[in-house]
């Protein structure tokens, strides 16, 4: 479910960064209030690493022959409480992004939101906790784990669809995308829910105090209501996204516009015959004038020239790399 940079537009990426950063800042502030903050740090680190190491273990799903691995959000929240679980999961996602190329740097905000904010800060306090509110029993823990894991993954998958659609990189129609994503993640969610339930029940059996303290500690209702958090998060997303998309639509190519603005003076001087003719040629023959494609074959010759130009550039880049490493080798010897 990790989103990649390649499927994301900068506006969506920035908006989700803002939301995730707000959630992280709030969580850190909440954790710092805790007297046992320092003592919880190694526990958070270990649980983050546990999710990681746990993902290396495959378990067999009966009657299917396929295998799965543990996901984490609800499991960590059940063990640590909402905020420490969120921080632990967030660091795991950053490490996955940096060292495993799983999810991109720009997409980090989206991934943190989809896989950490949703299960730890939304589903856990709003669904898991109310279910086990009357007291912990195996049945309640199992029900809460399965329902929360399913819902968490469904929401996560849905927001992947939304973020991808808003970025406009894929041509996949919204409904088709939703119909593809949701059922797959329903299946994954059920399996993850069962695994989470099994682990939580085992831990409750062995060390009931771990689940009890997570359930009692870092209570979200203290001081700040959930509604407030949700409203703030929604506002941050809306404002950042809105501003950026406004900017993007007013200047279809925001970055190009910015570059032109800054380099405008220098550019104006060069504007002579050559650039005029270049502009007219470009307009007439452009490979993709404003997203609309030229049909027919008239521009084919120049298109081929464009393709060849691209290939030459690519080859040059490769050659540059080879030359550098060759120079380095000769220097070493």
């Amino acid at each position: 479910m990790h989103m990649a940079d390649a499927l994301l537009s900068p506006a969506v990426g920035a908006a989700m960064y803002a939301v995730s950063a707000a959630a992280a800042a709030y969580s850190v502030a909440k954790i710092k209030e805790d007297d046992l903050c320092e003592k919880k740090i190694p526990v958070m680190a270990v649980s983050g690493a546990l999710v990681f190491a746990g993902q290396m273990i495959n378990f067999t799903i009966p009657a299917t022959g396929s295998s799965g691995h543990i996901g984490g959000g609800i499991l960590l929240a059940g063990l640590l409480g909402a905020f420490p679980a969120f921080i632990a999961l967030m660091t795991t996602l950053i490490i996955q992004c940096l060292f495993f190329a799983d999810g991109g740097l720009l997409a980090l905000g989206c991934n943190i939101f989809n896989m950490a904010v949703i299960p730890c800060l939304l589903v856990y306090p709003l669904l898991f906790k109310p279910i086990v509110a009357k007291g912990l029993t195996y049945r309640r823990i199992s029900a809460a784990a399965v329902i929360s894991a399913v819902l968490g993954l469904q929401l996560g998958a849905f927001s992947v669809v939304l973020e991808t659609q808003l970025s406009g990189i894929t041509a996949l129609p919204f409904s088709t995308f939703v119909l593809l994503m949701q059922p797959i993640h329903l299946a994954i969610g059920v399996v993850e829910g069962i695994v989470t339930a099994a682990i939580l029940c085992f831990v409750y059996n062995m060390r009931p105090e771990i689940l009890e303290s997570a359930n009692a500690g870092t209570r979200i209702a203290d001081g700040v209501s959930m509604k407030k958090i949700l409203t703030v998060l929604a506002c941050v997303a809306f404002i950042t996204g809105g501003l950026l998309s406004l900017f993007a639509s007013a200047y279809p190519d925001g970055l190009e516009w910015a570059v032109e603005k800054t380099a405008g003076a220098a550019k104006a001087e060069v504007k002579g015959k050559l650039s005029e003719s270049a502009a007219s040629i470009q307009e007439a023959l452009a490979f993709m004038p404003d997203y609309g494609y030229k049909s027919g074959t008239e521009g084919e010759g120049t298109t081929v020239a464009g393709v060849v130009g691209g290939a030459v550039t690519f080859a040059l880049a490769g050659a540059a790399g080879c030359v550098i490493s060759a120079i380095k080798k000769t220097r070493k010897t």
Binding site: S47, L50, A53, G54, I57, N58, F59, T60, I61, P62, S67, I70, L79, I194, V195, A197, A198, I199, C201, F202, V203, M206, R207
Partner: peptide, 16 residues
């Protein structure tokens, strides 16, 4: 691999 019915105790042990 690890059977589904053992995953709770396996991962649980690991966690503890």
């Amino acid at each position: 691999g690890i059977e589904m019915r053992h995953i709770g105790s396996f991962m649980g042990q690991f966690l503890l």
